[in-house]
Write a protein that binds this DNA or RNA. Sequence first.
DNA 1: CTTGACCTTCCCGCCGCTGGAAGGCGCAGT
DNA 2: ACTGCGCCTTCCAGCGGCGGGAAGGTCAAG
Lengths: 146, 146
Amino acid sequence: MNIGTVAQRSGVPAKTIRYYESVGLIPSAGRTAAGYRVYGERDVATLRFIQSARSLGFSVKEVGALLTLWNDRGRASADVRALALQHIADIDAKITELRSMRGTLQHLVDHCAGDGRPDCPILDGIADPARLGIAAACCRPEGEAG
Amino acid sequence: MNIGTVAQRSGVPAKTIRYYESVGLIPSAGRTAAGYRVYGERDVATLRFIQSARSLGFSVKEVGALLTLWNDRGRASADVRALALQHIADIDAKITELRSMRGTLQHLVDHCAGDGRPDCPILDGIADPARLGIAAACCRPEGEAG
DNA sequence: CTTGACCTTCCCGCCGCTGGAAGGCGCAGT
DNA sequence: ACTGCGCCTTCCAGCGGCGGGAAGGTCAAG
């Protein structure tokens, strides 16, 4: 199987496969006499595994660790679980950050007339971050626990 | 004011200020005879604005647009609002994606014993993405609307 | 006059690819 | 045999948003 075929079957672009090889995520493929990379079914499965793990947000390095565990018949599932839990924690941190941004932005937007006039609480809020803090508390009724 | 001072007062590292200048986010600073960059109060305010906008997740390019609006006394707040709303939409898309990842991962983790044995539904699920779909539906009671 | 903190430019590295150029290989058609 | 096309190879550059560090100039204090 040439790289184009394995790319199509795994869903990983040929350039990306070469990249993964160059950074050591996958071992160097065999070569034909002409220098073409040669792949087998196992490689398709590996690349699908990688694709899937990447789509779950694991970094290439983390995928490497997962691959190692996947190939290790003597692995402890606890190790895999630990990686996954850590990744969930990372995701949670990102979500928290994004929600914080979103909340601030939404608040600013809510206070902006959004018409032809230049007065803009959004710009004011960005210009003076202290107001962002104020903004977060200024119009909270009282029903929300801090 | 030298770059170190303005860096300290704005919270933007000197290297980053030079970078912002190099990509045209801020205009070229004035120079002393010796070639040192010179800044004033206005620059501190601008850099704080930038810092604040960046912390809300705006890209450097978007911050450029915000800065232009900020400096334009004839702006329409609707334009600012539109930028902010678009950014909120981008953030929402990211949050949605992260939550999807999180959901899948959590599900896999829930099914993994996480002990010394090698059997691992997490690895199985990653290896065969079809199972991820199954995983999403396999143990849903019936109370959840699709 | 020296020290040390500051400033300057420059280029490299990070992550995870993606695009493109220049050249070799394989096979079909004529 | 030759042409053409599509695939393969390598290498280099770039995206965003900086940070590290080298090599060298400047400034104020002692």
